[in-house]
């Protein structure tokens, strides 16, 4: 059954591999040059000073570096959050919807393996491949983004760390799988992934994420700037730095864990519903037939 699941999704896997390989090459060539320049110019030190905003030479250096290298990574951070959604549309939605759409579920379910094993293997193979690919990709992204900003707690870095990014990818795939079971049409299921993914992701990222723990308050710009300021910083001329609420930098992995747990929790719930729909409540209603016009007619001639 593993072979069958693999064979069925070989096309998607190959497509994803080509896409990731392409991105990987881009990322690697750009990343190596960027890391090189970063180390050569000793920008890490400068970056730290830059945050305090006092050393004009450093500021110029960092600005020049950002102009030269930061553009591409920043572009990526604007569209990469949609990649898990695309994974849901391309890998999740067809997983079961194509079986229902083409009628092959009837072939699969009348072979010698039980429906439970069939479904479990399909899910494990596809989710497993997706998980491995997304962890590797997230590790690459994390390495790439590293010199762009000294802060870890920016959305760009947080979203593509090796825990949260795979979490969103699994969530996207799970949405696709469930939509495929409910709607039984690949295109419909893929279309449904978009609003559902956004409806789940936006509240988590912008509503919940800042509140995983009670923020600290500080008026030390260095500490705030290293962490994640929650409030806007407004500072009039000649005023001291105002006290601002922020999430400290050392909560990064804690927040990663919390968000990943939430994502996996939703993923499990969605998959459990899909599982029940496929196995528990027995089979689907007879698939829609296209020959309604012949209803009532019994052909009696050859």
């Amino acid at each position: 059954m593993i072979w069958v699941a693999w064979r069925q999704h070989r096309g998607e896997f190959l497509g994803a591999a080509i896409l990731l390989a392409g991105l990987g090459i881009l990322l690697l060539t750009h990343g190596v040059a960027m890391h090189d320049a970063y180390d050569r110019l000793g920008l890490r030190e400068c970056h730290l000073v830059f945050l305090a905003g006092t050393d004009q030479a450093c500021i110029d250096q960092v600005m020049a570096f950002d102009d030269k290298y930061a553009g591409l990574p920043q572009q990526f951070t604007s569209w990469l959050p949609f990649l898990p959604m695309v994974a849901g549309m391309l890998a999740g939605a067809p997983l079961l919807a194509r079986e229902f759409e083409q009628g092959t579920w009837q072939l699969a379910w009348t072979q010698g393996v039980t429906r439970t094993r069939w479904l479990a293997t399909k899910l494990v193979v596809v989710l497993g491949v997706v998980l491995i690919a997304s962890v590797v990709f997230a590790a690459g992204l994390s390495w790439w983004f590293e010199p762009v900003d000294i802060q870890r707690f920016t959305s760009g870095k947080f979203n593509h760390a090796v825990l949260v990014f795979p979490g969103y990818v699994l969530l996207g795939v799970a949405i696709g799988v469930l939509a495929g079971v409910v709607f039984r049409r690949v295109l419909v299921a893929a279309a449904v992934v978009i609003p559902v993914y956004l409806a789940l992701r936006l509240p988590i990222e912008f509503g919940l994420r800042p509140r995983y723990r009670e923020p600290l308050t500080s008026d030390d710009p260095d500490r705030i700037a290293h962490g994640w300021p929650i409030d806007d910083i407004t500072m009039g001329p000649g005023e001291g730095f105002p006290p601002v609420r922020y999430q400290p930098d050392d909560r990064f992995w804690q927040f990663q864990l919390i968000e990943t747990t939430i994502l996996l929790g939703i993923t499990v719930v969605l998959l459990a519903i899909a599982w029940r729909l496929v196995l528990g409540r027995s089979a689907p209603k007879a698939p829609p037939t296209t020959d309604g016009g012949r209803a009532g007619a019994v052909t009696v001639t050859a």
Partner: peptide, 12 residues
């Protein structure tokens, strides 16, 4: 063994 209407098989 079961052969469904329109004999579906994996097209790819």
């Amino acid at each position: 063994a079961f052969v469904a209407q329109d004999h579906p098989v994996y097209r790819r």
